[in-house]
Design a binder for these strands. Structure first.
Lengths: 203, 203
DNA sequence: ACATTAATGGCACTCGGTGCCGCAAGTGAA
DNA sequence: TTCACTTGCGGCACCGAGTGCCATTAATGT
């Protein structure tokens, strides 16, 4: 039997309202991580600071490692749509390059937060490791697009290789960006992806 | 004060002898993983099966995740030496390609074990994630070589990008190899690395 | 008031991993 | 043989992440 959805006129559904939100929790947690470090901060610390129970924390995030990822999946859907709507005439790698640059273009106000988030993810071993699992869906989106373009299954060698190479290079660009304070992420990404398009045969 | 190393004529050092070896433990653990699954096998299970204490297990492996990696670091040193001894005239990517193929060329007898190991690593989320940390040193070896060749720091964009792209493509080749039973790993690796050398501009 | 729905959070438990420390089992030398 | 020394073993207690269970709380409409 389908659940009877009781809903108020203002769109509020029945039931107790969430005590906080994933975004709010993330914001708070990132602050504590910055102060005390990721490993040194326990889930209890975060929960206590947020005024919620430890158990409740795990209803907002599947794991402590998932905290710094924001709405990654949502952003991914935007990229998927962007790829799908590309003109058929435009070369595959060009579309890819543009989509990746878009995916990583943030409003200037968020620049500082992005740096914090990515420093955490790329320099904390536990998060570095965990990132692989999040990147998997990123690669899948790319592979599906390339597969469509070259008329192969997304699981085939070429789409998967293109996706993996682009991911590796994009992450490398992020690492370079973090190395120097005042640099432009998109410019570095563009340069790095350029290397990939031409191929490494020149070396 | 420097420790006085007392050592027998036959090369045996003083002190109690190890009850087992990392290789032996790995062999045993891999068998249990294959039967019961990685997540379903506790460290206690492995220790009990090996007749050692749980505490002792962690003297052989830094973590449960490190079990399936064999002598990865040792192999890496071989690759590093191989890269260092390459003729200066040979193109960088060609050297790289050959070194990677060598690195992944195993005696036929080990083929079945390799498949087991890699299936475990590439299809178990926890191990997939952990692999990133092991791959870091692999990338470093490549980046150092490329840096030397192009006259840049190993930390610079180009060496890092080349390393990351090669890693991504190599792992992809492994995944393709696992998809079909009778295939030749080295051939797939060669094909995949070929894509990278030419670049993706053709797509 | 009452049924319903959804979120909270406490409790107990499992498992990976670590620090501490006493003990076992080897060594060469007195 | 006995002793000092060295190295590996492993029990114990502890921490922290993550999960299943379930009673409780706070919101909804009838």
């Amino acid at each position: 039997m389908p659940p009877v959805v009781t809903m108020g006129a203002d769109g509020r559904r029945a039931g107790r309202r969430p005590a906080t939100s994933a975004a709010e929790l993330e914001h708070l947690a990132l602050q504590i991580f910055a102060e005390r470090g990721f490993e040194e901060t326990t889930v209890d610390d975060i929960a206590r600071a947020a005024g919620i129970g430890r158990r409740t924390f795990f209803r907002y995030f599947a794991s402590k490692n998932d905290v710094p990822w924001g709405d990654f999946d949502g952003q991914l859907e935007v990229m998927r749509a962007s790829l799908a709507s590309a003109a058929a005439g435009e070369p595959t790698v060009a579309v890819l390059r543009r989509a990746i640059l878009d995916f990583n273009t943030y409003p200037p106000a968020e620049g500082a937060w992005l740096r914090r988030r990515m420093t955490l993810i790329l320099r904390t071993p536990a998060l570095q490791a965990h990132s692989t699992l999040r990147y998997a869906s990123w690669r899948e989106v790319i592979a599906e697009f390339v597969g469509r373009r070259v008329g192969q299954s997304a699981d085939a060698l070429t789409p998967q290789a293109v996706a993996a190479a682009h991911l590796g290079v994009a992450v490398t660009a992020y690492e370079q960006w973090l190395l120097a304070e005042g640099t432009d992420l998109v410019a570095i990404l563009d340069e790095a992806l350029g290397l990939l398009a031409t191929g490494f045969a020149a070396f």
